[in-house]
Amino acid sequence: MNYTYLECLALFGVGGAHPGGLQLTKKILAEEKINGDTTLLEVGCGTGQTAAYLAQQYGCSINVLDNNSIMVEKAQQRFSSLALSIDAKVGDTENLPYPDKHFDIALSESVISFTNVIATIPEIKRVLKRNGRLLAIETVLEQTISEKEQTQIIDFYRFPQLFTENEWLTAFRDAGFQRVDVTKYQPGLEQVDEQHAADFSLSETIDDALLEILGKHEEIMQRNKDKLGFRIFRCS
């Protein structure tokens, strides 16, 4: 079977697969005003690691969505084991099953890049309240690369597009965000302890092909370490 990179993450049940993992997530969230009255949507929740932390740390109202049913099932298992009341849905970022102006914060950790950006960002903007904000960690193209190199990256990750920082800024502003603050993520600066390591919720059967995909991912990241980077976008 030919698995995609995202299917691989789902079957391994990787929590905190995004750059910086849970440690970076905590740092980003600590800079926001979040309390029990905050309504928050996590777009692309994975196994629910971030949502569980949010519920336990801040006690806010959380909805989560992912287009992969395996991920949602594993997130629901996590929430149930921790007795957390978090609504988890299988859904599409380009057609969010939520009303207009409903959330204070939308959070996306390496998710929007895997979608049609031009359709997803306006949809997230739609469900945010008038003064709501989007927090996003996303892949950026740091320098011009050959068409062959770009095709290899896009084909492996199934990215519909690969944006530079300026192209991201344009997409956020075109969707109606008035202010976009950008922080460059510098990998390898944090001391990752056991508490912040990626966690796994393995499926019963793990095909050898999945290990090959993880290996390929590491190879691509290493080969393109100067060409691919990550940014933290705060859009309001």
Rank of each mutant, 00 (worst) to 15 (best):
D181K: 11
I121S: 01
K33H: 13
R158H: 15
V14S: 07
R133I: 01
L82E: 15
D226W: 02
A75H: 01
T144P: 03
F114Q: 08
A175E: 09
K33I: 02
L228E: 05
Q23Y: 14
D199L: 08
A197N: 10
A55V: 01
G13V: 06
V72N: 04
L29G: 02
R234N: 12
V72A: 09
L84D: 05
R231A: 05
E212G: 08
G215C: 02
L135R: 09
I105W: 00
S203T: 09
Q77C: 01
L107S: 04
P187M: 08
I145S: 07
T139G: 00
I34T: 06
C8K: 13
G16Q: 13
R231S: 08
L24A: 11
S61H: 13
T139C: 08
V180K: 09
T25C: 11
F159H: 03
N224E: 10
T144I: 02
G59L: 00
R231K: 13
P97Y: 04
D92C: 09
I118T: 11
L24R: 05
F79G: 07
Q222L: 10
A175M: 09
E31D: 13
S203D: 15
Q186L: 14
D66N: 04
E73I: 01
E147K: 14
A136Y: 06
V43P: 02
E42C: 05
S201M: 13
Q76I: 02
L29T: 02
G215H: 12
I153C: 06
F79L: 00
L9A: 07
Q152I: 04
T93E: 11
L24K: 08
E190N: 10
V111R: 00
Q222W: 06
A75R: 01
G188L: 03
Y185L: 12
A75Q: 03
D207G: 06
R130L: 06
L6V: 05
I154P: 02
Q23M: 13
E165F: 05
I121P: 02
R234F: 00
N68K: 01
S110A: 12
A55E: 12
E167H: 13
T170Q: 14
D37H: 06
D92P: 00
V111Q: 01
G176Q: 09
E212T: 07
T39H: 12
A171E: 14
I206F: 08
Q76A: 07
G188N: 08
P99C: 04
D100L: 05
A175P: 05
D66Q: 04
E7Y: 10
L41C: 09
M1Q: 13
L135F: 02
D226T: 06
L141S: 06
